[in-house]
Amino acid sequence: MSNDFIQILLVAATLASGLVAGVFLTFSDFVMRSLGRAQPAAGIETMQIINREVYRSQFMVLLIGMSFASIGLAGLGLLFLPDPVAAWLVVGAMAYLGGVMAVTARINVPMNKALDAERPDSAAAFFLWQTYLRNWTRWNHLRSAAATAAALCYLAAIMAAPPAA
């Protein structure tokens, strides 16, 4: 496998992880705060729509694709690349898979499903919304930080990789 190809893979992984981090940061920084300032029924309904639309988005391809890419890069590193590069790839994969995908699957998605089960104008939705905003955003901060950490690890792997011959 050529060094040039590996460099391209690492640059792509760095950019993709950074894009995922940016989307999460957008929600943590101002989207959730804006939804919280809207009338509760409007904020709830908007978040329900966002949560339904995300499944048909390019972001979902990027989010899930980076899971497979992270596993592949870690395997590539362990099998074929020098130790410093391999270490960065394994740590990057751990950050992405643990901090992005596991948190998404075990925490944020179940919260989204619970919110989606409520009528936006119901009392139950209103009470759920009060904790949803805070808790969902806290966990989303972690997802943003983990995706950023993965991007930085992939960048470090680029820096640690031997120069192309």
Rank of each mutant, 00 (worst) to 15 (best):
L73F: 04
A150Q: 06
V109T: 05
I50G: 02
N140E: 04
V31Q: 11
V11F: 13
I64L: 15
A156H: 02
I50E: 07
D116H: 03
H141Q: 07
V100P: 07
A42E: 08
N51D: 11
L62T: 08
M111Y: 09
G43Y: 12
P110S: 04
V100M: 10
Y154C: 03
L133G: 08
G99P: 03
A149T: 13
L9N: 09
V85F: 02
V109K: 07
S2V: 02
I71T: 04
V90K: 03
A95N: 03
L25V: 06
A164P: 00
S144E: 10
L155T: 05
A38M: 15
D116P: 03
G92S: 10
A123E: 13
L15H: 02
A165Q: 04
G36P: 09
H141P: 01
K113G: 00
L73P: 01
P84H: 04
I49A: 13
L19M: 14
R138A: 09
A102L: 15
A74W: 07
V23T: 12
I50D: 02
T131Q: 12
F5Q: 12
S144Q: 14
M60Q: 12
V54Y: 08
A157L: 09
G77V: 10
F30P: 00
I158G: 12
V91S: 03
A16L: 15
D4E: 12
G18W: 06
V11T: 14
L9E: 11
N108K: 10
V100W: 01
D83Y: 04
G65M: 10
I107Y: 07
L155E: 01
V103C: 09
L25D: 00
M94H: 00
N3L: 14
F68Y: 14
V90I: 12
M159H: 03
R37G: 15
R33D: 11
A38S: 14
N108Q: 05
S70H: 07
L79G: 11
L9G: 05
